[in-house]
């Protein structure tokens, strides 16, 4: 049974966007801070640290969750995905990112990576989700720039393309 003292910094190893990586964390370090500060995961954005805004949303073992509401030590051995893993090695955007660009679904871009993770996670488990369900999923994210219009268009377009 792993036990970690409050002042101990332990090595946390995990898979980040397909690569095995590790960093040091004390028990109280938030997963969001760990990913950003120890693993340079710039696609994790911190917006509220109380689980409401959704900017820090990542996928943990496939599921979209708030990384500000998890501790780094809890992610030991987990498969973590962030929006940085969507684009190809050559930087080519994936279909969801392209749909976001085409539909002007982002302005400042701060909320975007979290939304991308919710969308891919949700459609992986609900490939036939309709507009209402997609809206419900997007309800877990705050965007202050776009009024959600472009986001909804992009997500609908992407969901339809995936089904096709």
């Amino acid at each position: 049974m792993p036990q970690i003292g409050r002042n101990e910094r332990v090595r946390v190893s995990l898979t980040l966007d397909g690569k095995k990586v590790s960093g040091l964390a004390e028990p109280r370090m938030l997963l969001s801070d760990f990913l950003r500060q120890q693993l340079s995961a710039g696609a994790v954005h911190v917006g509220c640290e109380h689980g409401v805004c959704g900017a820090c949303t990542i996928r943990v073992d496939g599921r979209a969750v708030r990384s500000c509401l998890m501790f780094a030590v809890q992610a030991q051995g987990c498969d973590i995905e962030t929006a940085a893993g969507l684009a190809g090695e050559d930087g080519e955007l994936d279909a969801l990112q392209k749909a976001f660009r085409k539909n002007h679904a982002l302005q400042c871009g701060y909320c975007t990576p979290g939304i991308l993770m919710s969308v891919t996670s949700f459609l992986d488990s609900n490939p036939d989700a309709g507009e209402d369900e997609l809206k419900d999923m997007l309800g877990g994210h705050l965007c202050r720039c776009t009024g959600y219009v472009g986001i909804m268009r992009a997500v609908l377009e992407y969901a339809a393309a995936r089904r096709a």
Binding site: G42, A83, A84, L93, T112
Partner: peptide
């Protein structure tokens, strides 16, 4: 920005 390489002040 979409490629997630966006650099906000906190990323610098």
């Amino acid at each position: 920005m979409l490629s997630a390489s966006a650099r906000f002040t906190d990323d610098m």
